[in-house]
Design a protein around this nucleic acid. Structure first.
Lengths: 95, 95
DNA sequence: TAAAGTAGTTTATATCATAAACTAAAATAA
DNA sequence: TTATTTTAGTTTATGATATAAACTACTTTA
């Protein structure tokens, strides 16, 4: 009846991040922070969880002398998102 | 961009219960337990949370000498579900 | 009348989410 | 030049949450 929902994606901030990355493919820490209204600390933690799961990759560099963290979604992340959306449908259609 | 998701509904078991009740209007404890594959303990806790929020009402009676717990969705519960589904859409459409 | 079954509830634990505190370097002000 | 502030994050302490295990209370069956 109801398929299990991927616990990594069934969380607001992580889902927001993946949702953004699915469209943009790549995004900077600051961009994600702005779009999600998350605190830096929370975002940092959740990004690392997504990276540990292999859903995104995190690249660290510098821009104008400041650290720059860039996140990119992986194929695994895209598939996980598609699966999650598909599983959720059954919960949402109230029929 | 992303609206906040009702934390009461953004949880698998509670969402399953509400999703079922939205269609059936009313359901017995055992029915919900079967459909959701939840343990009785977990279901009991989550039903009470939904009742505390005013999303469902819980009626206790007896049938064939055994206790019978019947759950019914409220108008507030229906509205909350509709709101949740609508808020979620923004997260799911990857665009 | 003891054992097993029904229908749940309560609670202890383990996990998780989050903000507060912190790090480290750069830019700016004094 | 030496503080102070700002940028860009990370680490961690805590409080909340989800869940299963343990329990309650009653009924049926052996």
């Amino acid at each position: 009846m109801f398929k299990d929902l991927d616990p990594l994606l069934h969380q607001q901030l992580r889902l927001s991040v993946i949702s953004l990355l699915v469209s943009t493919k790549e995004a900077e820490f600051g961009f994600l922070k702005d779009k999600t209204n998350a605190t830096a600390g929370n975002l940092s933690v959740q990004l690392n969880k997504l990276a540990d799961a292999g859903y995104i990759t995190i690249a660290k560099s510098f821009r104008d002398n400041y650290p720059l963290t860039t996140c990119k979604i992986t194929q695994q992340g895209i598939s996980a998102f598609e699966n999650y959306v598909s599983a959720l449908q059954d919960y949402l259609k109230s029929k």
